[in-house]
Simulated scan of single mutants.
Amino acid sequence: MRLSAAAKDRFAQVLTSAGLALVLAVLALASPSPAQAEGRIRIAEQYGIVYLLLNVARDQQLIEKHGKAEGVDISVEWAKLSGGSAVNDALLSGAVDIAGAGVGPLLTIWDRTRGKQNVKGVASLGNFPYYLVTNNPNVKSIADFTERDRIALPAVGVSVQSRVLQLASAKLWGDAHYDKLDKISVALPHPDAAAAIIAGGTEITGHFGNPPFQEQELAENPKARIVLNSYDVLGGPSSSTVLFATEKFRKDNPKTYKAFQLALQEAAEFATANPEKAADTYLRVTGAKLDRDFLIKIIKNPDVQFKLAPQNTYTLAQFMHKVGAIKTAPASWREYFFDDAVTAQGS
């Protein structure tokens, strides 16, 4: 099946942006600059509408706005990476101050840095259902994937998509086989994976993605269909993407940290009240080649909720400890999120 003109354009753009992001990431990791006290914040985001609140904050300069209210002129720097592993490495190397990734990468880095950098969650970016989409007509459930299939996701064994797939596998085949599908999983940025699913004819027959890529696959390839929904695996609406930081950054930059959270809060209110304008913001900031009405429909999906408090994350935390993915068993979600007002009503 051939790519549509829009898909070809998007694929070419993705390759360029992904290559640039890789170069920037390598340079940042090679010579990271130390965190500064107040007035500077470096934020790592990834691909997809799940980062819409950051797009809004960037477009409206909300961090800078709330910084001025706190008496601080804040310089904001943005980096785009792909995969929880890259994001976690960037945070620990000192290349960024705020990391954006799934709950899986947060739990991994929280466990890894306990008693050292003490990385914890800063806020959720909202609840979004993640779909595992396939273009293989023989695959009706995850049990039907074979050695000939390849499932694309941001980072094997680390990303939230990978962890949710492991949890689904454990429910199907037992805890001892939770990583059964890891061997046919491959790390690939969402835009690249979506292009492969839409085009067909490649080794990639499955993609555990996020909006808008999963919706594009379903709309542009008539053979594409949903095999797994993250909400079904986790037992309901859940935070898909979260932001996290080191204890030192939070402690050394209280005004900048507060301004960042207030900016997110205003962005969440804006996106909830103005889905059309939020869609325009996403298109403007990311340069994505998406139909505006298509994007608005995704944002208006009743399953999508813009909340800063994490929701339904503890199920994954318990699972990851149970299978040995993290050494520490958190007593509750509060152990891996900072004690802040915006996250007080989490779970």
Rank of each mutant, 00 (worst) to 15 (best):
V285W: 03
R148T: 12
P34F: 15
G48V: 00
T16L: 13
L29R: 15
V23P: 14
D73T: 12
P212Q: 01
R150A: 13
A12L: 14
L167I: 02
A7S: 15
T134L: 05
G71T: 12
H190T: 12
G84R: 00
A99V: 04
A341C: 06
P254S: 10
Q36A: 09
D192K: 09
K120A: 04
A101Y: 08
Y231G: 11
S238Y: 02
N55F: 03
D339E: 07
V242Y: 01
T202V: 09
V72N: 07
F128R: 00
G39K: 00
L228K: 00
L243A: 10
E203V: 15
F128A: 01
L290W: 05
G174K: 10
A309I: 14
A224Y: 06
G94C: 01
A25F: 14
S93I: 11
L20V: 12
L228Q: 03
E220W: 07
E269K: 08
A7P: 15
R150C: 13
L106D: 04
D291G: 01
D232N: 10
E203T: 15
L264A: 05
G236M: 08
E203Y: 13
H66D: 07
T313Q: 03
I109T: 10
T272Q: 09
V304N: 06
Y130K: 08
P275S: 08
R42F: 00
L92A: 10
E45Y: 12
T16D: 15
V26D: 07
R112S: 13
P191C: 00
L22T: 15
R334N: 13
S17A: 09
Q345G: 13
A95F: 12
D179Q: 02
R10Y: 13
L167A: 06
R225W: 08
S17E: 11
L106T: 08
A6L: 11
G48N: 01
A194K: 04
T313H: 03
A195Q: 07
N274I: 02
P137S: 10
A90Q: 00
L218C: 10
L181I: 01
L290Y: 06
S239L: 12
T241P: 14
E266A: 06
L316W: 03
G200C: 10
G126E: 03
K80C: 11
L228E: 02
P129E: 00
V156T: 01
F244N: 04
A199K: 15
I184A: 11
L27Q: 13
D280I: 01
L62V: 08
E77A: 07
E45S: 13
V156R: 00
T256S: 11
D179R: 00
N55M: 05
A224I: 05
S159M: 02
I326E: 05
I142M: 09
A288V: 00
I142V: 03
L27D: 15
V285E: 06
F244Y: 09
A18M: 11
R150H: 13
P212N: 02
E266F: 06
V72S: 07
F249W: 03
T108K: 14
R334F: 13
